[in-house]
Simulated assay, not measured.
Amino acid sequence: MEEAAARELLVAVNPNTSSSLPFLLLVPYGEGLLLASAGKWPRERSIFCMELPSRCWPRSPDLVDRSRVLACERRGASIDVVLDRPVRNRSQLVFTTCRGREMIFWQSPQARVRYPERSVVPASTAAGLSGLEIIVDTREKDGYDFAYQPVRLVRHRLACGDYGVVHDGRLVAAVERKSLPDLAGSLANHRLEYALAELAALPRAAVVIEEDYGQLFALEHSREARIADRLARLQVRYQSVPIIFLGTRGLAQEWIYRFLGAARQWVVDELAAGSHIDGQPGNRALRSAPAAYSASESSVRRWAYTVGLPQPEKGPIRPEVWAAWRRTHPRG
């Protein structure tokens, strides 16, 4: 559909007068997503929609609204649409199931706030936590036992991070845990930069610090401003990996549990939504996630030597060497 390629959101009168949905909505997602809609814009209430084949779009549509689209991206079981206009510029198409039927709702922030009981946002994070399996890196010392959470812990050498969630042999989410002294040390010797580079290759990742941010400026034998500046530069460089200060070990453990549970549920939703909306499971990030389990550093060093990749005998293995290893060993 040529109109969809123009990156515009088009609303037209439905030429099928026998339909109970009087409008057509053409969304510039993919090759064009055509919906029959019960309204022109979701004001106070969410609007029910039904997907139609592209041939149902009329050659000479009777347009009632036309707006340039700034962003149109799928996130899980919904498509977020941002329009280039000052008001009524944000909306969301939610793909959900109700009473065994697949349904699509068009909603705006106003509709969700005013009618929270009618919200059709996908299931909450808690639904993803039952039977959660967390992989704990074998190099993790004095780690968390998640004694008060319903999880199953499995120890294995992870490709990166200290705690992770695995799907189909691939590491889809991981969290790196650090105490404040470990954070300062890894900033000084650049280990944190290497770790962030590896975490950034995952679909979802984070770094958790077991202290408040203010404690950075109470470190002894360290130049506080320099540490804070290095940390800020790394966060800007690796913006996809949030660095979270959580104050205590207990809060850090709880946050990791919630984060990995949400990531596990995101994988389930993404696979289902991708198959339904895009015609293939998951998204590009999920399909390109690296192998979950890592070889030992000694074996990677030997491999790098045999293929002629420069690598010092001591110190951390360079990220480009790890990347080359994973390209040639896709299952770790």
Rank of each mutant, 00 (worst) to 15 (best):
V136Q: 14
K178D: 11
D145V: 02
S108Y: 04
G164N: 10
T125K: 10
V175R: 14
D162Y: 04
V113M: 13
L129S: 10
E117K: 03
R152S: 13
R152N: 10
Y115E: 12
R112Y: 02
Y144G: 12
A159T: 02
R177T: 04
E140F: 03
W106L: 07
R152Q: 13
A174T: 01
R118G: 12
R170G: 07
K178P: 08
V113W: 05
H156D: 15
V154K: 15
G131D: 11
F105K: 08
K141H: 08
A159E: 07
T125A: 14
L171F: 07
Q110W: 03
G169R: 03
R139H: 13
L180K: 08
R157V: 00
Q107H: 03
V165A: 15
L129Q: 13
A123P: 10
P150C: 04
Q110A: 13
A127C: 10
S130C: 11
R155T: 04
D137P: 07
E176Q: 15
A174E: 09
T138F: 05
A173T: 08
Y115K: 15
P122S: 15
R114H: 08
E140L: 04
H156S: 14
W106G: 09
A123D: 14
L132F: 03
D168Y: 02
F105R: 11
G169D: 07
